[in-house]
Amino acid sequence: MSDFTTDQLHRYSRHIILKEVGVEGQLSLNRARVLVVGAGGLGSPVALYLAAAGVGTLGIIDDDVVELSNLQRQIIHATPDVGRHKVESASNSLKAMNPDVKVEPYKFKLCADNVLSIVKEYDFVVDGTDNFAAKFLVNDACVLAGIPFSHGGVLRFAGQAMTILPGESACYRCVFRQPPPEDAVSSCSQAGILGAIAGILGTIQATEVLKFITGNGQLLTNTLMSFDALTMDFRKIPLSRQEDCPVCGLKPSITSPVDYKPAVCDPRSGKIE
């Protein structure tokens, strides 16, 4: 039985008329709870498309404020938002996009002490973070809590994505054992990124979420999808679970989330110091 209002039927009509989504698929989207980690380059298109799609509850976590230099790619924020907390700015954009969506903002950083309790509240998690420490933290927490998630990363003109179903498919740590040494990697701020690259990759991640929730197609499980926008080459590298993976293998050495940079969570703000 559908409880859609007439407005909702119009809003979601292009989903409902898809054979693969239909009324049931749209209801599943409306009931779904998705956490977007990071309200930046990837989190912007992910959260906007999920809100537009009618995902019922969107958690969004980020401790940053909007800076002018973000606006070249972080399209959930606009010029008047400079100086505002990203989660507040993002919540406003999402509510404007679709008032049906309930936004749960977290105005602090994910860290080893808070990550499990947060990811456990959601059906699916999207990694839209910009650093390796956070990517491993999200992976480990989702694997330990058994929450499906999408890994995504972008730099310069390239991006990569992978979908992880804990216990079923290879995890991020099966492929990348540990973060590279800090001085070996460039951050976005040092390396630069073509803004639209974040849009391509974030939209791929949002598509994976929508496929997962509606039960359609083949996910990017056991697969690292990568692309180079300069040549527009997309490729898929097949992967498999590793028995010696430190978090999802047979004898895991990681049994609780770890912060890579020595960090202390302030229990009041959750901020890493």
């Binding site: 039985m1 292009r14 409902i16 239909g22 009324v23």
Partner: peptide
């Protein structure tokens, strides 16, 4: 179109 199909599918779903 496509609202006639939307209403048809909503009815069939019931």
């Amino acid at each position: 179109c496509p609202m006639n199909l939307v209403y048809t599918k909503v009815e069939l779903a019931k």
